[in-house]
Design a protein around this nucleic acid. Structure first.
Length: 561
RNA sequence: GGCCUGUUGGUCAAGCGGCUAAGACGCCGCCCUCUCAAGGCGGAAACAUGGGUUCGAUUCCCGUACGGGUCACCA
């Protein structure tokens, strides 16, 4: 077989050679140890947690080493492409601190355009490059055309599905039949010419001569030493439209673009044999690989499953909706990525997570379950460190988008809102009430008359008389200019008068000697003023609310008794 | 089913041949306290399993069980 002739037959329009490409895309000149990583999404939807995870690794590794982090768009499957998805991905990533140095990134007008000399960065625009290498593989007898149609292949799959019911060895069966159909190199040039003349489409397959029984040792930077069998699958390099599959595009692009570390989910591990063979066939140096563990969720049976697109917590835009701040999500991701992150953070509470020395060796090798409890805890801490102004701004912004009525209330008087969010903020032990911006409303909504309601009732083991007298006396003595101690002394005085213990220690020593304690007296007032059993410091609440509204609410309560 | 891969408390995880097997989240209790949110202190809770190797295995090897991933002209 004359492979040169075959190559011309198959790709007559390709005049370039691999050397031309090597010349067009020179090796990068970077300092020793600099890592070149990339995020290479297919524009089929939103960014999900499983995508943010590896991209965070890539971003950290590149920027921590003085390297390059670039974005390549893997739009080789036109059927699955979603309009505007790429733009959405980039924007979402940016909110999580994932910024690119190079690649298909957004310009000032919000349009995607190429930045960098290794473009185009959209794979759909790189057909000539791929075909140049493909043609070379054909010349070398390493790849061959296959005219078996998709329909014929599908038919085989159907046959094998039926056999699956009674036969355990269904996949082996399928492979055997498929191998027959493919015919590999047992075709003649004349047959190819006939097919082409008839306009039959073909795919280009690699010729796989590996023996899967033979394993080689391979070192993955995350997984460690793993066994990789030789590839024996004649996988598709170029689809019938001349566009490459992931495998071929990965080899050509990551070689030409100078990727040093390929970071991807562990679901790619099974196709590693393909990539190893392909890089060898093309004469490319293999990059380092990092197959990182998947994020899991629990299914109904209690088994772990890969967190998929439709799952709660998958879509990053959901986090925005739920009111999580990006910093919290990033920190949570860091805790999952590097188990010593928390320790570092406790020692460096004021440093941003980007100062943390991210370490590949500390990465977990097995998949973890997504844990909202942990995220909430991280988030509470993040928010507790913000100042009142920042919290006010962020809650307002969130509410305006997702809870407009609440948002308008906040926006109508930012100074008032800020006073509320300043309660217990600052200092060594700040309050930690908010895990999400959405928590703000239940926490402090009662400050607004529009949202105020008696949510909690006073337990009925107290008499209405005691409650009424308490409230009456409180109004009678309330002076907004009292300081906190004076204010509380007055509350205690009411407790004493009504036979409630003003001293908690005395009450605990002998509860039966009292009707209750000053805690209960405070509770009566608290429910009247906030509508709830639980609220931040009552004195401060009244200060912010103002004397008139405080009294008005207490009177409203009295009227119901 | 084949292949790859994993298995330390409920969750995330330290550990890297000898330890009373860290820590964080969650849970429970106590303290503090006008309630809550915190904070402090304490508690329950784990090396999947069977064989080896070894003076000694959570750590090394083999098997078993149970997870996970994958087997497209998708990435």
């Amino acid at each position: 077989m004359d492979y040169n002739y075959l190559a011309e037959l198959l790709y007559p329009n390709i005049k370039t050679l691999p050397e031309d490409m090597e010349a067009r895309y020179p090796r990068r000149e970077l300092p020793e140890g600099a890592k070149v990583t990339r995020f290479a999404p297919s524009p089929t939807g939103f960014v999900h947690f499983g995508g943010l995870f590896p991209s965070t690794v890539g971003e950290r590794l590149a920027h921590q080493s003085g390297g390059v982090f670039y974005l390549r768009i893997e739009d080789t499957d036109a059927k699955r492409e979603v309009e505007g998805a790429a733009e959405g991905l980039i924007k979402t990533l940016a909110t999580y601190g994932i910024n690119f140095d190079e690649g298909a990134i957004l310009d000032e007008n919000g349009n995607i355009s190429d930045h960098g000399i290794y473009g185009p960065y959209k794979q759909s625009q790189r057909a000539e490059i791929y075909q140049t290498y493909a043609k070379q593989l054909v010349r070398e007898g390493k790849a061959y055309p296959c005219f078996t149609t998709e329909e014929e292949l599908d038919e085989l799959a159907q046959v094998n599905k039926k056999e699956e019911l009674k036969n355990t060895d269904w996949q082996a069966e399928a492979e055997a039949k498929r191998a027959e159909m493919l015919a590999r190199l047992e075709f003649t040039i004349e047959e190819v010419e006939e097919h082409l003349k008839a306009g039959h489409p073909f795919v280009l397959r690699i010729l796989a001569l590996g023996d899967p029984e033979k394993k080689m040792k391979f070192t993955d930077l995350v997984k460690g030493n793993i066994d990789v069998p030789e590839n024996d699958e004649d996988f598709v390099l170029l689809k019938s439209d001349g566009i490459p599959t992931y495998h071929f595009a990965h080899a050509v692009d990551d070689h030409l673009m100078g990727t040093t570390h390929v970071i991807r989910g562990e679901e790619w591990l099974p196709s590693l044999p393909k990539h190893i063979q392909l890089f060898a066939a093309l004469g490319f140096k293999l990059p380092k690989y990092m197959h990182i563990a998947q994020i899991m969720k629990l299914d109904e049976q209690g088994n772990k499953k890969k967190l998929s697109k439709r799952d709660m917590g998958a879509n990053m835009d959901d986090y925005t909706r739920m009111g999580y701040c990006p910093e919290a999500v990033c920190e949570y991701i860091m805790t999952l990525l590097n188990s010593n992150y928390e320790e570092w953070h406790m020692q460096n509470p004021d440093k941003p997570y980007t100062d943390f020395p991210f370490n590949i060796k500390k990465m977990s090798t097995s998949g973890c379950l997504f844990d909202f409890d942990k995220l909430n805890d991280v988030s509470k801490n993040v928010i507790s460190r913000m100042d009142a102004k920042a919290v006010t701004d962020k809650v307002t912004e969130w509410a305006l988008a997702f809870d407009p009525e609440f948002g308008k209330l906040l926006a109508a008087d930012p100074a008032f809102a800020e006073k509320i969010f300043a309660i217990g903020r600052g200092g060594k032990k700040p309050r930690k009430d908010l895990a999400t911006w959405a928590d703000a409303k239940p926490y402090m909504g009662f400050f607004y008359d529009e949202l105020f309601a008696f949510e909690d009732a006073i337990p009925d083991n107290f008499t209405k008389d005691d409650i009424k007298v308490t409230l009456d006396k409180f109004i009678a003595t309330y002076d907004a200019s009292d300081d906190m101690n004076v204010w509380f002394d007055k509350v205690k005085a009411i407790a004493d008068e009504l036979g409630f213990a003003s001293d908690m220690k005395a009450y605990k020593a002998d509860p039966s000697a009292f009707k209750g304690s000053v805690a209960d007296i405070s509770m009566f007032i608290r429910v009247a003023v906030t509508g709830k059993m639980n609220a931040p410091d009552l004195y401060t609440v009244m200060q912010i609310l103002g004397k008139d509204r405080t009294i008005a609410r207490i009177n409203a309560m009295i009227a119901t008794l």
